[in-house]
């Protein structure tokens, strides 16, 4: 006797919970051969607003974790992904990647996380400083997380690009709202399930799925987002820059029209972290 199929309802990972869009809307996702795969939530600006509230709640606690602990948690996330790498690779293949390419993308993603797990307790030594000043003062420059970061992922490399953009942000104590690839959202859905089991506090990473055209304007104008990083086309870049200027937001975007070599090690490291921190310089008198 054949068993009735039990299909999964894909949901977005927001505030440590799995949510449907507040709008109740979904859009069908088809695999590369055109067969129906699942209905994906179509998040709205209100879902984004709610995600920002969740991130704001989680932020102070995450920023106060010791650097060492943040590294442990990123490493733990890599472990979770390693254990379920086959599932991630299958999720990537829905978009048409070959098995070999998908496996390679998963492996690169995991390694990228390990890379940043190592950085959590090291970037401060490199970016912070004791500055020489001509008066009896200590003059320190220390780093602080910016706050809530909006991440716009590209259409390609649905897992690796997502990890590449999220990891440096959370490494230094930021929280993230990421919009998954519109055409290949499923790897982000699966990643959400791994984030939920990774010791990463709920709300630190929030993953939305849906239409870019609906969500980009709100990403750009929401004053609580402190920076936008990711990939955008020319029209989106203009729109984001204009609205970001109103809310004094840092914008760090790659051009969607130029190809990006996502596995390249050039895309990871200290410079990616530096884009997402603020520097604070303090003066302190020497001696009594």
């Amino acid at each position: 006797m054949s068993r009735l199929p039990i299909t999964k309802t894909p949901k977005c990972y927001v505030g440590g919970a799995f949510i449907r869009s507040e709008s109740g809307r979904v859009a069908p996702l088809h695999d590369a051969r055109g067969a129906f795969f699942a209905n994906i939530p179509q998040c709205t600006r209100k879902d984004l607003r709610n995600a920002v509230e969740a991130a704001a709640k989680a932020g102070p606690g995450w920023a106060k974790r010791s650097a060492y602990n943040r590294g442990q948690i990123l490493y733990r996330l890599a472990e979770m992904m390693e254990a379920r790498s086959a599932e991630l690779a299958e999720a990537i293949q829905i978009g048409g990647s070959t098995k070999a390419d998908a496996n390679h993308e998963v492996a690169s993603s995991i390694e990228r996380l390990i890379h940043y797990a190592g950085w959590t307790d090291k970037y401060e030594q490199l970016l912070g400083n004791v500055n020489p000043v001509a008066s009896p003062h200590f003059n320190f420059t220390v780093t602080e997380p910016m706050g809530i970061i909006g991440v716009l992922t590209p259409e390609e490399a649905p897992l690796l690009a997502l990890i590449t953009l999220i990891a440096p942000a959370i490494t230094c104590g930021n929280t993230v709202i990421a919009l998954a690839s519109e055409s290949q959202p499923y790897p982000a859905i699966v990643l959400g399930e791994m984030l939920a089991t990774s010791d990463l506090p709920g709300g630190v990473v929030n993953l939305l799925t849906g239409q870019r055209s609906e969500l980009v304007p709100t990403f750009a104008s929401h004053t609580h987002l402190r920076a936008i990083s990711g990939v955008a086309n020319a029209d989106e870049r203009k729109e984001i820059r204009l609205a970001a200027a109103d809310s004094v937001k840092r914008v760090n975007l790659r051009k969607a029209e130029d190809p990006t070599d996502w596995p390249s090690p050039k895309l990871q490291g200290l410079s990616a972290i530096r884009e997402l921190i603020e520097f604070k310089t303090t003066w302190h008198p020497i001696g009594a």
């Binding site: 991130a55 932020g59 102070p60 004053t223 609580h224 109103d246």
Partner: peptide
């Protein structure tokens, strides 16, 4: 304004977030 607002613009006792 049409833009969602951060709570720290409204004399909220807010941290960096």
């Amino acid at each position: 304004t049409g833009a969602y607002q951060a709570p720290y613009y409204f004399s909220e006792a807010a941290e960096a977030y």
